[in-house]
Design a protein around this nucleic acid. Structure first.
Lengths: 200, 200
DNA sequence: GTAATAAACGGAGGCGCCTCCGTTTTAAGT
DNA sequence: ACTTAAAACGGAGGCGCCTCCGTTTATTAC
């Protein structure tokens, strides 16, 4: 339902691009994701254009500002993370799916730690981006938690927002070298707590 | 070892500048204030250096980032505004001094309207800057209000923070072409209210 | 006054940003 | 298949950022 609405909006807002334009645009987003990950959010836009095999003018036509490009990359990554929830749910027992998804979630945030400042500015400047993505994340998590509660693999006295709060406690911890490892341990710990008393 | 480093830093902080260095630094701040006013906070640093008659390297030695320079200019302007409070108090009846100072205050904010976004980022990033300057403004205003209350030229049932709140209502109004004029009218209105019932 | 030296100067150079516009490609009409 | 107009391309060019380092200048010691 929600996906149908999104699809409709996209169709309404965007006229179809010419084949070469669509190809270049997709390529740019893909390369940009890689380069931002490698060099941070201040990476050279000219490097992105070069590695995507297009001229700098083409990059600017598609993404008038750096922020436009970052936003598209960010939305794409959040969407990939969230749509993985459904796939995990189909392939694993619901508690395992939830655990794996939470692990990916904190890992994703870990990779963004370095960019936090610039990204936070973008997220406060562009409140639509913030509400869209945080809504999408909540939805994915809710799906997993409700399934696990329903089939009794985790306890029934928690809901998605409880888990989200618990996770935020994990990823808002200070930024040390072992941050990533500790986060994973904490996710395991949280998961054990969720399994305890399950099926009662 | 650590002590040596600390000692070096202290020395560096307190050390008087060489005569030419001080001259260039002052010149840069003065020119920067003009250029930022003319072209906005994103003005070219090379233009500032050029108009100050120094090389770009000299500008960067004194102010490693644009933010450093903006901060110094901003502090200087706030200080000029606030120290004018004392001068006004010496030359005018206390109610007139207060009115004139408030007029200058809203005018100053009016000039900063266009830069608001960048400046707000700087003020939230650098909380020392924010608390220092807002403290200084409060102090200047308090001085004027207390004097006017004390000699009965304005009513006694208000204090500086009341007036500051009233002013913030004035300058947070939307940004229209007549903003400046309306603000002045509102200051006059506020002042009439303050005078009403004075000396009771 | 002169020499020595630490401090400051300044601009060339390399890189990235962004715009502008002549060239190329697509796709719609015939 | 061919023509053609619109769409997209891409890179040169101008400007600003910032660093690096050879040169100049102020100050200190004699």
């Amino acid at each position: 339902m929600a996906e149908a609405v999104i699809a409709e909006q996209k169709a309404a807002e965007e006229k179809p691009l010419r084949a070469d334009a669509q190809r270049n645009r997709d390529r740019l987003v893909e390369v940009a994701a890689t380069v931002f990950a490698e060099r941070g959010i201040d990476a050279s836009l000219e490097e992105i254009a070069r590695r995507a095999g297009v001229g700098i003018g083409t990059l600017y036509r598609h993404f008038p500002t750096r922020e436009h490009l970052v936003e598209v990359v960010y939305r794409r990554e959040v969407e990939a993370l969230c749509s993985a929830a459904g796939e995990l749910a189909a392939k694993h027992p619901s508690d395992v799916a939830l655990e794996e998804w939470m692990r990916r979630f904190v890992d994703y945030i870990a990779t963004k730690r370095g960019l936090a400042t610039s990204l936070r500015i973008l997220l406060t400047t562009n409140s639509t981006l913030f509400s869209d993505t945080s809504g999408r994340v909540s939805q994915a998590l809710r799906q997993l938690v409700e399934a696990a509660v329903a089939d009794g693999t985790i306890r029934g006295d928690v809901d998605a927002s409880d888990v989200l709060h618990a996770l935020s406690g994990i990823y808002s911890a200070p930024d040390t070298p072992e941050w990533r490892d500790r986060s994973r341990r904490l996710v395991k710990l949280l998961m054990d707590g969720l399994r305890f008393g399950a099926g009662k």
